[in-house]
Write a protein that binds this DNA or RNA. Structure first.
Lengths: 335, 335
DNA sequence: CGGCACAATGTAACCGGTTTCATGAAACCG
DNA sequence: CGGTTTCATGAAACCGGTTACATTGTGCCG
């Protein structure tokens, strides 16, 4: 692998000129430019990114902060893959690489610095944060250090930090309106962890739409889960004694768990109980009779995250308000 | 952020000594070592990885080659996320970062060099390849260039290249044996793309077990799909006229599609047709009556890939034979 | 006590780029 | 035609580490 010096020598020019050919081609004469480019292709010259990063402090890498340590409540969710693929594709299109950061252990495995240190050591240009609402101090350290951040489904604010989210409140309204339209009166809901932003928003939207329609949502008609299937099953068991005719589960996984509880109780969907979920993960379409749900635009989220980080890297200020993507009602057999 | 020079100055030692404190601590006297470490903690010194990479040509980064470009048949599969999480966790535990490589576009978007160039520019130590059996020439370029490679479900050989796979043939046998045990005689199968290694192995194992049991698998009882749901549906439609009593679908997604076709034909599962899948993705447990399937150890695959690449980075030769992980029969309602 | 091995440290070259500043030649101006 | 811009390029410092080699000060040996 030839270096810039080697290439410069073969072209009979200085390294500065070669460097210019690749970085500011407009200021080098067409003749030399051609010559250098041809020779570069011939010898297979590739600029060394480490050297470039060292000199410029820009790495063309976006960090992904996603703590998959099994001791921590790292977020695993079936739709993350869709987001990740979209994110990676959109970044690739800009020539940016996505670095899945290993937490830095030099200050201890639980250090508040574990992400920040990794980011700084690698001169990562910005980060995308996938977290489950746990407000990990190590994530906050990034915000405090003013690393350009884009958080998914997490409300962070700071001069260099913005977030991307679905219109959770609007989705909650969509769900409520749909159940109202279907003529339901005894309506219950299974929410996510109450202290997480998406869960709170979905519930707020849902409740607001019910209120506007002149109904109220009793506390006893609210059960909460942890997004995952088993918690939906358990929550539904708690709700069954209230004999609702319709349930809004704030996540599809929980909805599927709830459906199981409903079946086990000998009730039919949607005849005895209608159910609507949120997310539109793959199983929603597959589990009979098909789960009506509020779809999130997963690809849109990934793409928006990429756009947001790219904009910040180009110098735009971080939008103070979250970028909100529309949700859509997908009607299937469960309502 | 302080540099090594700064730290050396404050400690009253040379940069070489500081460097040794972090790289070969055993050859520096305990006194200075302590002093340097204390001072490093005090000023928040972090070694710059780009500089280190530049000097050593080791980056502590493993590349992930996974072409998600929508124009290409990049592999998307529900279980990839599990593999990815396991891979990332296992690498993180070794202090290695996972770099999702953006294809290098400097030689054109379809260049055979697009991954290799990215790998070389970033001095990536090794790569993990996720591909769908398409034998992309750009992937082969990595093998040819003798980059340390670990391929998932892809049979590559080379002095620096090994692969990780489930025991697909064994899994195929498991499926056949299970159907035989259940007393089925009219058995059909839906395979993956015939030119892919996992599909071929699963079919081979399946057929072998049938043969050993004194049965044959007629060509007309074999339909192939592309792993995804719709193709399973279509394949099953083709098989229905053969009125099989049991079907082995070489992937769960296709199995779910097949189940749909079976239902639409007014047949019951498992009473009229039993079906067994492969993979054990999340939906398998959720789609009624529960899909019996041959489970792959997704976490094991990710972990094994990490171990394999780590071993190669430490100097071990690439195992010529693939690392094969056991599969397991998961019995549910569909058989 | 001279010579030697060894442990601890320093000096300086090097990794491969970017960028500031200087330089020389050509173009432009009155 | 002399002086000033402008353009293309080169020289050299710099980014922040690693490491081969040189240097120094011990302790040990015969």
């Amino acid at each position: 692998m030839s270096s810039i010096k080697e290439l410069a020598r073969r072209c009979g020019v200085s390294v500065a000129t070669v460097s210019r050919v690749f970085n500011t081609p407009e200021i080098v004469s067409p003749g030399t430019r051609r010559h250098v480019l041809d020779m570069a292709a011939e010898v297979g010259y590739l600029p060394n990114e480490s050297a470039r990063t060292l000199a410029t402090k820009k790495s063309n890498m976006v960090g992904l902060v996603w703590d998959t340590d099994h001791r921590r409540p790292g977020w695993r969710h079936p739709f993350l893959q869709d987001i990740l693929v979209a994110l990676k594709s959109a970044l690739s299109a800009q020539g940016l690489h996505l670095l899945m950061l290993a937490p830095d252990r030099s200050a201890g495995p639980d250090s508040r610095q574990r992400f920040l240190r990794a980011v700084q050591r690698h001169s990562v240009d910005g980060v995308v944060i996938i977290d489950n609402g746990s407000r990990d101090p190590a994530v906050l350290a990034l915000v405090d250090a003013e690393v350009p951040c884009v958080a998914l489904d997490l409300r962070f604010t700071g001069p260099t930090c913005t977030s991307i989210t679905s219109d959770n409140a609007g989705g909650g309204r969509l769900a409520a309106q749909h159940l109202i339209d279907r003529g339901h009166h005894r309506i219950a809901t299974i929410t996510g962890p109450p202290d997480t932003w998406p869960a709170a928003e979905r519930l707020a939207g849902f409740r607001a739409a019910l209120t506007e329609a002149g109904r109220t949502l009793a506390d006893a008609d609210i059960a909460s889960g942890d997004w995952y299937l088993d918690s939906g099953y358990a929550a539904m068991k708690r709700l069954l004694p209230r004999s609702p005719t319709a349930v809004f589960a704030a996540g599809d996984e929980m909805a599927v768990g709830a459906m199981r509880a409903i079946h086990e109780a000998g009730l039919r969907i949607p005849a005895d109980i209608a159910i609507i979920g949120f997310d539109d993960i793959e199983v929603a379409a597959l589990v009979p009779p098909g789960l009506t749900t509020v779809a999130q635009d997963k690809t849109g989220i990934g793409t928006a995250a990429a756009e947001a980080i790219v904009a910040m890297l180009l110098g735009s200020p971080a939008p103070a308000e979250p970028t909100t993507l529309p949700t859509a009602l997908i009607t299937r057999g469960s309502t």
